[in-house]
């Protein structure tokens, strides 16, 4: 290629860039809405697709904001440049669900120092150079699952634990929380294996568990696809009716659907925080003060409570935006559904 054609191509590209670049920065009116940048670390996991969908649903009828999404495809450096692009374009607020803390802390700090409010979703960054952190607590959810399991089995039984990736924080927390939850009971974990969050692996590991143990009362998997994979294995062995299956995440089209089908006895919600992020973003943009940290409440879904939208963990007084739950009267252990 000659130098002339290169420069011609370059200028064409530049022209294109100028034409398609949206105008950034707004004043919060319908004609000139605030621009919120959403930096997602990857859209390979259904849970993160759900997070974006939750954000989109919450922002749909808000005329005064405009969202720009970027997907870093699980690449830390890509996510870093996405943040830098957002800062360069002068967005009004940044929502980031970071891939990992250490390398993304400096770019987030730069955005924050440049006067852009930052909401950090799900995974943390280091220090306190952000406006707000919104996330759920895997340890608490794991513990709630452990207590539920202990109650459902009346304090005694053989359990299989199918772990997520044990080199990842969610995997470690869902494991240690669960162990804490069943502490003091006679629940015995007879088989545990790492299934790397993947359904085919869960099915494989469960087949091994079934081959080794004739008596399994319950399978606790660190995510719903894992629990579903275990159910497939048990079904193929004709033993799916002999045991219960419990999973985590409770996405509407995954865990909740499995509960509706009677496959899972319970699925524990790991909330995405997408809705809360938009609510708080609007408060921040309107100049209101928001708490530095929000720990999301989580629900447990069982066949009995699915129609009512699940049951909040940790009692009924805490779900601030769901006042209707205050009217419901829960007794721990009622209908076999314990609450924290």
């Amino acid at each position: 290629m000659s130098i002339r054609s290169v420069s011609r191509a370059l200028s064409a590209a530049l022209l294109m860039a100028v034409l398609v670049l949206p105008a950034f920065g707004g004043s919060g009116t319908e004609a000139d809405p605030w621009v919120i940048g959403m930096s997602q670390c990857n859209l390979g996991e259904p849970w993160r697709v759900q997070m974006n969908a939750d954000i989109e649903a919450a922002a749909k009828d808000k005329q005064n904001i405009k969202l720009v999404y970027k997907d870093a495809q699980n690449d830390t450096l890509k996510q870093r440049s996405h943040i830098e692009e957002f800062v360069g374009q002068g967005i009004d607020l940044l929502i980031i669900s970071p891939k990992e803390a250490a390398p993304l802390t400096p770019p987030v700090k730069k955005a924050y120092d440049a006067g852009i409010p930052v909401i950090v979703l799900d995974r943390r960054v280091m220090g306190d150079n952000y406006t707000q952190f919104i996330g759920a607590d895997n340890k608490l959810i794991g513990e709630a699952a452990g207590i539920w399991v202990a109650n459902a089995l009346r304090g005694k039984g053989k359990v299989v634990e199918l772990k997520g990736l044990m080199t990842s924080t969610p995997g470690q927390d869902r494991h240690s929380g669960f162990r804490k939850g069943i502490e003091g009971s006679d629940i015995e974990v007879v088989f545990e294996a790492d299934m790397q969050w993947l359904e085919p692996n869960a099915r494989k590991e469960m087949e091994s568990a079934l081959a080794r143990h004739d008596e399994i009362a319950l399978v606790y998997a660190h995510n719903d696809p894992g629990a579903h994979g275990a159910w497939l294995a048990a079904k193929a062995a004709g033993r799916d009716k002999d045991m219960l299956f419990v999973g985590i995440d409770a996405l509407p089209h995954e865990g909740q659907a499995y509960v509706a089908q009677g496959i899972l006895a319970a699925s524990f919600e790991y909330p995405t925080g997408g809705k809360e992020a938009i609510e708080n973003a609007l408060k921040i943009l309107a100049g209101e003060d928001v708490p530095k940290e929000i720990v999301l409440k989580s629900r447990v879904f069982t066949p009995e409570n699915l129609k009512n939208g699940g049951e909040w963990l940790g009692g009924d007084d805490t779900a601030e935006e769901d006042d209707e739950w205050d009217d419901l009267d829960f007794t721990p252990g009622q209908s076999g559904q314990p609450v924290l």
């Binding site: 390979g44 259904p46 509407p252 089209h253 659907a257 509706a260 089908q261």
Partner: peptide, 19 residues
Amino acid sequence: SGGQKISQSVQNADGSFGY
């Protein structure tokens, strides 16, 4: 697939999920 698993679950008109 729209990034989601294609399973038995379908979204009803009112936003709830059935299968």
